[in-house]
Design a binder for these strands. Structure first.
Length: 181
DNA sequence: ATATCGATGCTCT
DNA sequence: GAGCATCGATATT
């Protein structure tokens, strides 16, 4: 995979990331849920221009944008250039299961990485990785086959509700929230 | 099965 | 001072 993968419309990148395998220090699994956030998107951190927090969203593509949410959890995005980014929302855990279970406190596999905050805890992602290239150590990102894709509105936001920019692997038991029919 | 609520700290208004 | 791109526990149908 090359950085050109990320220099495309952010919703396409978000859709294509479902099925890819993401690890940090060899710990992680297949991406099964993502969300796209664009520069001209009222729900995006970048909507009101560059600030201290969102600066890496305006830098090069293929970088990690990591921020703290609710004072407790971390969220991991991959930048796509020009103020856009893809939020990684859920993984199907497969590599380094014991490490992830230790970090998360022995959770059943289906709930190990089923949410943006959970997967950051499981993979050991925090602010020290903000701005780091995702195509180099400690990250590893490999293309994978995409099974059925399911699309729906994004979760947990209060603006631009209803924009169908959430992408999930169809029927996966590892999602943060099941897509409603 | 859904609903509500508290934790906790930073960013931006 | 308000508002979070959340999570886990507890309460309620």
């Amino acid at each position: 995979m090359t950085s050109a993968f990320f220099e495309r419309p952010v919703d396409l990148v978000a859709a294509d990331l479902v099925g890819c395998v993401l690890t940090v220090e060899g710990v992680g699994g297949r991406i099964v849920e993502t969300e796209a956030y664009a520069a001209d998107d009222p729900a995006s951190h970048s909507f009101r221009g560059m600030t201290g927090r969102n600066a890496v969203m305006f830098g090069p593509a293929a970088r990690a944008y990591v921020y703290r949410i609710y004072g407790l959890h971390w969220c991991l995005n991959v930048t796509c250039g020009g103020g856009s980014a893809v939020l990684i929302r859920a993984l199907q855990p497969s590599l380094g299961l014991e490490t992830m279970m230790a970090r998360r406190g022995l959770v059943r596999p289906q709930a190990l990485c089923s949410g943006p905050g959970k997967l950051c805890q499981a993979l050991g992602v925090d602010a020290s990785l903000n701005g780091a290239p995702v195509l180099a150590r400690p990250f590893q990102l490999a293309a994978g086959p995409r099974a059925g894709l399911e699309v729906g509105p994004r979760i947990g936001i209060s603006r631009a509700i209803g924009v169908p920019w959430r992408f999930c692997e169809k029927g996966s038991p590892y999602l943060s929230v099941r897509i409603r029919a």
